[in-house]
Design a protein around this nucleic acid. Structure first.
Length: 222
DNA sequence: TAACTGTCAATAACATCCAG
DNA sequence: CTGGATGTTATTGACAGTTA
C-alpha cells in the first residue's frame, strides 16, 4: 500500500506540477483505488492502470471546476424551489405520488439505491433501453413538478387501504415485479416511518434492509 | 503513454398503445 | 382523433481497463 501511495504521489505531481493540487489529486486517487480493491481484493493494479486512474481523476477535477457546482443528491433530481438539504430519497418521497408507478420505481432503484439500468431492467422485466429512457423522462417530470407551487404537498397521496401495512407487502410487490404495488407499499411504509435503508440485487435475489422507528434493523431476502 | 475495446448512461427520433 | 405514457433503435460520450 505504501508503494502504491508513492506511485500515486509521483504521478500526481507529474500531472499537476503543484504541491497542493498534487496532494488533493493523490487523495482522490487513493480513495478510488481503495474502493476498487475493496470491491475485488484479488485485482492487481498495474502501473498503466494506476496512471490511467490518476489521469482520469485529474481530468474530472478540471472539468468540474469549469462547471457550476451542485449538491451530490441533486445530481439527477436538481429540483429548484425545494430545500436543497433533502436527500434524493426525500425528494422522491415528496413527489413520488405525482409520477406514474413504474417511473417512480425506476427512479427509486436507480437514483436512491444506485441500481444500474441493466439491473433495473432485469428486476422489472423490461428492456435496458426502456429503463434508460424511462429514468430520463421521470427525472425531467420531477423537475417540472418541482417548479409547480403546491406539487410537493404529500396530502394528495391517499392510501386506498388495500395495502398491507408492513414491510412484507413491499417484498411481495417486488417479488411480483408489480410497479404499482411497489410504489404503494413503499410510500405506505414511508408514512409509517419504516425505512427501506438498503436494497441490493445479486444473482436474481433481492436483499432488503428495513429500519423501524425504534431503529431496529430487519433483513429480508426474497 | 497513445490507442484501443467494452460497458453503461443519456438522448433523439420515431412507433405503438390506450384512455378520454 | 388526440395527447400522454411507454417502447425500440441508433448515436454519442464518459469512463474503466487492456495492449502494444
Amino acid at each position: 500500500m505504501k508503494q502504491l501511495q508513492q506511485k500515486i504521489n509521483r504521478y500526481s505531481l507529474k500531472i499537476t506540477s503543484n504541491d497542493r493540487e498534487c496532494e488533493d489529486l493523490a487523495q482522490d486517487v487513493l480513495l478510488k483505488v481503495h474502493k476498487r480493491m475493496e470491491a475485488d481484493p484479488a485485482c492487481e493494479i498495474s502501473n498503466a492502470y494506476l496512471y490511467k486512474i490518476v489521469l482520469n481523476t485529474w481530468k474530472d477535477k478540471l472539468k468540474k471546476r469549469s462547471l457550476p457546482s451542485e449538491p451530490l443528491d441533486e445530481r439527477h433530481l436538481g429540483l429548484p424551489g425545494i430545500d436543497t438539504e433533502l436527500s434524493a430519497r426525500e425528494l422522491l418521497e415528496l413527489l413520488a405520488h405525482r409520477l406514474p408507478p413504474r417511473a417512480m420505481v425506476i427512479v427509486l432503484l436507480m437514483d436512491v439505491f444506485d441500481f444500474t439500468a441493466k439491473e433495473t431492467a432485469g428486476l422489472l422485466s423490461l428492456a435496458e433501453g426502456a429503463v434508460q429512457v424511462a429514468v430520463g423522462r421521470a427525472r425531467l417530470k420531477l423537475k417540472k413538478l418541482a417548479k409547480q407551487p403546491d406539487s410537493a404537498s404529500p396530502a394528495s397521496y391517499q392510501p386506498d387501504g388495500s395495502e398491507q401495512l408492513d414491510f412484507e407487502s413491499l417484498v411481495e410487490a417486488f417479488r411480483r415485479r408489480n410497479p404499482d404495488a411497489i410504489c404503494k407499499s413503499y410510500l405506505s411504509l414511508a408514512k409509517q416511518q419504516i425505512k427501506l435503508s438498503q436494497l441490493s440485487y445479486r444473482d436474481g435475489q433481492l436483499v432488503f434492509y428495513f429500519e423501524d422507528p425504534d431503529g431496529n434493523l430487519i433483513r429480508v431476502t426474497s
